[in-house]
Amino acid sequence: MTRLWRWLIPLSALPILVLLAYGFRLNPRDVPSPLVDRPATAFALTTFEGQPVSLEALRGKVVVVNFWASWCNPACYEEAPVLERGWRAWRDRGVTVVGVDIQDTVEAAQRFIRQFDLTFPNARDTSGKVSIDYGVYGVPETFFIDRQGRIRHKHVGAVTDEVFRATVSRLLAAE
């Protein structure tokens, strides 16, 4: 083998390394939800303050439905301030945030709400029906619903300010 040819040995490993690096750009959990672009299933729950909250009543608004739990650490803890900020910034422009607490105890959930000073409606999904209807397989998961009541985007993991702003303004712009 000539001097130069042998350097092909290390180079032969490059394609595999490149393929693996490519793998980073993908998220294997990022299976597109079949619910996207379909009408969101209606739900009616009671908030921790005892107020009714239903999707029907919010028709005409962009609704951000966030599934969370107090034991969901750290992602739910990271996104709680983001959701509160988003709610405060966009509520006057026709956007509502609804928190759905799943598989939790009332005390722990209320502690969580107090800790982050959450002011948007939060309700417990006591029977688990809502989370099943929305195909939630882990918390947090967030669904962005447009003014016509269709799910337009599903976000898995903690929502960031950018995701919130970009998605909400896209849905507001669309007629």
Binding site: W7, I9, P10, L14, L17, G23, F24
Partner: peptide, 20 residues
């Protein structure tokens, strides 16, 4: 993941270069 991939690349490329 990026850390491991970087180290993997270092190990594979480095040792194969030694071999060559």
């Amino acid at each position: 993941g990026a850390f491991f991939l970087g180290f993997l690349a270092l190990v594979v490329l480095g040792s194969l270069a030694l071999l060559a």
